[in-house]
Amino acid sequence: MREMTVEDEQLALHALSLIDLFAFNSGDTEQRIVGMCQRALTPVGPVAAVCVHSRFVCLARTSLDRLFAPAIRVVALVNFPYGGSSLEPVLAETRAAVISGADEVDVVYPFRALLSGDQQTGLQMIAACKEVCGSRVKLTVTLETGDLRDPQMILQACRNAILSGADFIKSGTGKGLAVTTSQAARIILESVAEVGGQVGFKIAGGIRTFDDAGTFLKMAHARFGPQWLNVDRVRLGSSGLLDDLLVRLGVQEENASRL
């Protein structure tokens, strides 16, 4: 591991402030959610958000408020991770998340429907979820680009999601085997550029190290400039990344994750 320069340290601190921590396993417990919320307050500053299944939204929000961390956002994972095509369960989950106090909803795009040639399901689902979220709750649309694969398919999904009201486009769930590629990230950034950078960019899936984070942040910086790289426009979806950053910043020993 190379020695951190001043520039590296600044980049690491910036990356940490953009992290979305995840608890997305079916066996997650209340204890684990509380532990993740505690972990979100690091010795060098807070992360951006914690991401939980909709049933844990209230617990996460309460836990963060008790830690005097109201600025850390709670993101509800919806239609996760399989990206089903049935509208009503997704809307019910979204409503429950909003009622429970979610700051953001992260819905997995029905990518298998798109792969089969069905664009309408995705358009309708995202538009309906946005209507439930309204203006207060931000909507992330997760594309699972590792499954879509084809650049034109990824571009079409991005455009459909943006057209339907997405506030963020995210590259993957982090549950798939395929990692987010630089090509997929560029396609998302291209789609965001088509609307003047008014939609955010989230990366998840295979982003585990300081170098991984730096690669994607530099891509976003090159496209939109430094002012765009803020919590309302860019997120890094990874829990493993936090460990690497804390080790490199000298506030955690290697292999000492608290989750």
Rank of each mutant, 00 (worst) to 15 (best):
V74A: 02
A213K: 01
C158T: 09
M125W: 03
R39V: 09
L148D: 01
R66D: 10
A69T: 10
P151R: 04
V132R: 01
R95N: 07
A127R: 13
V192A: 08
A97N: 04
A127L: 09
G206H: 04
E131N: 10
L13M: 12
A256H: 13
G27N: 14
L64M: 06
T180Y: 07
T5F: 11
K202A: 12
L41F: 07
R208M: 12
S135L: 10
R258Q: 14
L123S: 15
S85I: 08
V75T: 05
S86T: 14
D65V: 09
Q252C: 10
T209M: 05
A23P: 00
D28L: 13
V251G: 05
G214E: 06
M219C: 04
V247P: 06
K175R: 14
L246D: 00
T42Y: 08
F80D: 04
A71R: 14
L139K: 00
F224T: 06
D211P: 00
F22H: 10
M1S: 14
I126D: 03
D232R: 12
L11T: 15
L64E: 04
C37I: 02
T209A: 09
N25V: 13
G240V: 03
F224L: 04
Q124H: 15
V90N: 00
Q152A: 15
T145P: 02
A256Y: 10
D65I: 06
